[in-house]
Write a protein that binds this DNA or RNA. Structure first.
Lengths: 260, 260
DNA sequence: GGTGACTGGATTGTTGACAATTCTCCCGGG
DNA sequence: CCCGGGAGAATTGTCAACAATCCAGTCACC
C-alpha cells in the first residue's frame, strides 16, 4: 500500500494530561487511554503505537505497555504478538453475542434486586422512572441516555452481585460504539421507555420472576435493534475488514452518549 | 548468557521450565504461573515476589511483571499497589456469587446448544453420558471429574457463544480450589450424575427450555453444596482474613481434580 | 514503661538502552 | 511484466540499573 503520508492520522488528540507528579504513573496511562477509547477520541481499529502514545501521555514506554496489557484484558484493545496494538473493533455479530451475555447477567441482577430491594431504593427507582418519562416527553435523548445508564447501574448496585456487576461493566465498555449508534435511532427512546418502566415496576413490586422477564424482553429488543443497525447501519464498511490498516480517519465521533 | 545454573530443587513449587529459546519469553511466564496456580502448586494467599519468581522461571522481572498484570486481569492473582502480588483467595461467598454468574451464562450456552446441536454433536454427548455413568458405576471420581469437565466444555463449544465461553473460562479458573473440595464429597458424583444426564437429554432432545431448567437445577445444587462446604469446610477460618500474611509454604495440594 | 521517630532492608515502580522481529520497498533475474 | 531476495526502517520485546515506597525492628525520649 503506497502510503507515503507522514502518518497524518493525527486523529484523536488524546488529552495530554500529564501524570500527577508523585502519585500514579501508569495508572494515569490506563485511565487516560480508557477514557480516550470510551469517549471515541481514538477510533476503533486505530493503531496504538507505544512510543507515540507514551510521548503523548508523558509516561515511559514501559508504563504505557503495562497499560496496554491491562486494557487488552478488559477487551478494549487488541494485541497481536509482534505487530502491535489497536483499538478493538466490535463487529455487529459480536455486539449481539455480547448483549446476549448481558441479558443473562442483567436478568440475574434484576432477580436479585427484586429480592433485596429496600424501600428507600425502591423510592429512588420510582424517581428514576419519572425522570425517564420526563426525558422522553421533552424529547431529550441525551438526558435519556444518562438516566438510562443510571437506571442500569442502580439495578446492579441493588442486586449486590459484585461479580456479575464487574462482568457487566467490562461487557458494556466494549459496546459503547454500538450503544451510541442505537441511541441515534429516532423512535428508540420511546420504545425502550416501556420496557424500562416494566423493569422498575417488577423490582419495586418485589417480583423476581417479572423482573427476569422484563429484563430479558428489554435486552431482546436491544438485540433486534442491534441486528438491524448492524446490517444497515454501517453503510460503506460492509462486513469484515481484517486489516483496516492504517485507520487514519479523524476519529471525531463526538462524545459517546450511549443509550438504549 | 545461557548459564548452566545449579538451581537446586526449590522446595516444591513451580516447574522450573525455562523459556524455549527464541520464541516466547513472557508467554512462558504466564502459562507457567497460571499452571502453577491452577494446579495448586502455589497456595492461595501465597505471596508472589517478582524477583524470586523471575529467577525461578528464568525470565526477567519486567516480563514476569507483565505476566502478573495479565493474571490479575484474569482474576487469578491480587495486586495491591506498593505491596506486591499474591494468589487470590476466593472466599466461600465469592465462590457462590461466581457460581450464580456461571448459572446465568451456562444456561445461556445450554439454550443455544439445544438450538444448534447437530446430529453428530448429539451423538458425542450421548457417548459422554455413557462415560459418566460408567465412571460412577466404577466409583472413579477422578475420571468422573474429567468427563464432567469435558461435558461442560462440549456444551460450550456446541453453543457457539464465544463471548460467554470466554467469560465462563475465567470464572471457572477462579473456582478450581472450591470445585476440588466439592469433588471430594462422597455422595456428590452420584448426585450430580442425574443432573448432568438431564442436561444432555435436553440438549440432544433439542429442547431449549428444558436445557435451561436442567442447567439451572444443576448449578443450584452446586451452590447449595458450596454453601455447605463453605461453612463447614473451613473450620477455623471463618469469614475474612484480610492479611493471612505469610502464607503457608509447602503448597502441596495435589493435582487439581475439579469436578462437581 | 510506653510512645514516637528513625534507620535499614526488602520489594515494587520507573526509566532508558539494547536485541529481535516484522513489514515495506527496492532491485535484479526470469 | 511478474516474481523472489535482500537491505532498511519502524516497532515491539527484553533486559539491567535507578528511584520511590513500605515494613520491621530499634532506639531515644517523655
Amino acid at each position: 500500500m503506497p502510503r507515503p503520508q507522514p502518518d497524518g492520522s493525527r486523529a484523536g488528540s488524546l488529552s495530554s494530561d500529564r501524570p500527577r507528579a508523585g502519585e500514579p504513573a501508569r495508572a494515569h496511562a490506563i485511565t487516560a487511554l480508557r477514557q480516550a477509547i470510551l469517549s471515541g477520541d481514538v477510533a476503533p481499529g486505530q493503531r496504538l503505537v507505544e512510543e507515540e502514545l507514551a510521548a503523548r501521555l508523558h509516561v515511559t514506554r514501559g508504563s504505557l505497555r503495562a497499560a496496554l496489557i491491562e486494557l487488552t484484558a478488559e477487551g478494549l484493545v487488541e494485541r497481536v504478538p509482534n505487530k502491535g496494538a489497536r483499538v478493538r473493533v466490535v463487529t455487529a455479530e459480536e455486539a449481539v453475542a455480547i448483549t446476549e451475555c448481558r441479558m443473562a447477567l442483567e436478568a440475574l441482577c434484576a432477580v436479585k434486586a427484586a429480592e433485596r430491594v429496600t424501600d428507600q431504593q425502591a423510592a429512588a427507582l420510582l424517581e428514576l422512572a419519572e425522570r425517564l418519562k420526563r426525558c422522553v416527553a421533552d424529547g431529550d435523548p441525551r438526558k435519556y441516555s444518562e438516566a438510562n445508564q443510571e437506571l442500569h447501574r442502580t439495578v446492579r448496585v441493588i442486586s449486590g452481585q459484585s461479580v456479575a456487576v464487574a462482568l457487566l461493566d467490562r461487557l458494556n465498555a466494549q459496546l459503547v460504539r454500538h450503544q451510541f449508534q442505537l441511541a441515534l435511532r429516532p423512535g428508540r427512546p420511546g420504545h425502550s421507555l416501556g420496557e424500562h418502566l416494566a423493569i422498575i415496576d417488577a423490582i419495586t413490586g418485589r417480583d423476581p420472576e417479572a423482573a427476569d422477564q422484563a429484563t430479558r424482553r428489554h435486552l431482546a429488543s436491544v438485540i433486534t435493534a442491534l441486528r438491524a443497525a448492524g446490517t444497515a447501519g454501517t453503510p460503506g464498511a460492509a462486513g469484515r475488514n481484517d486489516h483496516p490498516d492504517d485507520t487514519g480517519r479523524t476519529a471525531a465521533t463526538a462524545r459517546a452518549a450511549p443509550g438504549e
